[in-house]
Design a binder for these strands. Sequence first.
DNA 1: CGGTAGGTTGATTCCCATCAATCGGAGTGG
DNA 2: CCACTCCGATTGATGGGAATCAACCTACCG
Lengths: 247, 247
Amino acid sequence: MPFSMIHHRCSPSPETHCQTCCHRSLCLPLSLGLEDLERFDTIVRRRAPLAKGEALFRQGATFTGVYVVRTGSLKQVTTEGGVDGQLTHFYLPSELVGLDGIDENAYPGTVIALQTTTVCEIPLDRLDALSERLPVLRTQLYRSMSKEMREDLRMLRLLSHKTAEQRLAIFFTRLSDRFRRHGYSPYSFRLSMTLADIGNYLGLAVETVSRVLSRFQQQGLVAVSGREIHLLAPDALIRLREEDDAC
Amino acid sequence: MPFSMIHHRCSPSPETHCQTCCHRSLCLPLSLGLEDLERFDTIVRRRAPLAKGEALFRQGATFTGVYVVRTGSLKQVTTEGGVDGQLTHFYLPSELVGLDGIDENAYPGTVIALQTTTVCEIPLDRLDALSERLPVLRTQLYRSMSKEMREDLRMLRLLSHKTAEQRLAIFFTRLSDRFRRHGYSPYSFRLSMTLADIGNYLGLAVETVSRVLSRFQQQGLVAVSGREIHLLAPDALIRLREEDDAC
DNA sequence: CGGTAGGTTGATTCCCATCAATCGGAGTGG
DNA sequence: CCACTCCGATTGATGGGAATCAACCTACCG
């Protein structure tokens, strides 16, 4: 049984409109007035839900637009030369998918649902046209892209200098922050991805992830049962993130 | 004597205008007609040249706008908690600096000139206002940001799964590509950054960079004299980039 | 009931960081 | 002009952290 990463407070129904969507305070049109929001709503295309393992789009596919996650979660995998790809992003509700496909007019990775997932599709040409008249929408779009660049940058730092324990600590605390932002419990959640996914994402072998997780449990930092995670000592995890800079 | 990374074909003089700038085919306003180009030119502020080691802006400084490198080169260093920062970007002529500062209205890293460097400053509010009327400019801005996201993504892959030799091979071939794009010799150039910088950027110790470089020279892949680099066997380097995926 | 995907645990190997010493060149100042 | 200094680069020795290889376990599913 696939665990759901979050409790669905938002209906996955395709009938949903931006005006009533539970993510409207975090989504692209977050600063729009009611009237503009309605206009925005008309350019959004609701998709049928994706089943677990199903692809939203594949690497190299022609870029058509960006997507916002409504319920569920996804991963982006990029393959290059070698056999198995690198996992570069996890996407949670209200987050934007596909912005990195604009430049070359093709998606740079395959995006796969980790569970039953619903998304909104926003064709870029119509978004661009609408943003011409709505400065706040334009600003929000810039900010979203800028934010993703900043996130990637943090990831760069993580991958180049952190130990396995630090990576896991950072991974959990960041997930925690994202859940908090979305109004869910930051200290108790379910992982929709496998340990292999996490390892791939963090640049670690599955075995290492498993071992570090065991150590965390022994130290009483987290409690794991199945894919249910409880952060018992978030402060200790936060301390761990930086720690051996002291050495 | 600081080596210059490129042969200056473009005048560093502050009198330069976009209309006559040698980078106009690679820069933001690349698709503008002459009239619009002139309008764009009026919002650009030319800065006095930066001396080697001088900062364009510091981490945390309030975001004012983006910069385009006209001559020279820079590095972005981001410090977080620990003492010495992580080098996240090198910037060459015609490349955009500071896009990642939009979201939080502050620059996420300190950007430092690696040599005498001139930049154009583009206040974001004026760029945004202008782009409202010029769809192609808006598109170009989206593409630039998208491109940087894609580049960061490639860097992620590099840092999480590649060996030291592959990292150096990738580093050199990418530099090579950037020089080619700019019309310079892709097989013979000068490095404006130190080995320590390169190591920091690639997540390697200086010693490792030095050792790999020595190995490359023994194998006849590159020739190094001072900071002058000659790629003798670019094909072999390209092969190296993927190689041990086969294992 | 077998098959498969995901997770755990142990033994071994190896790549690279770290520590340490040395060297060379550039800039400085007497 | 030469010593002095400092920064950057080089080379060697050592150790550690994580990958790899391998075996096994568990849960789920057709």
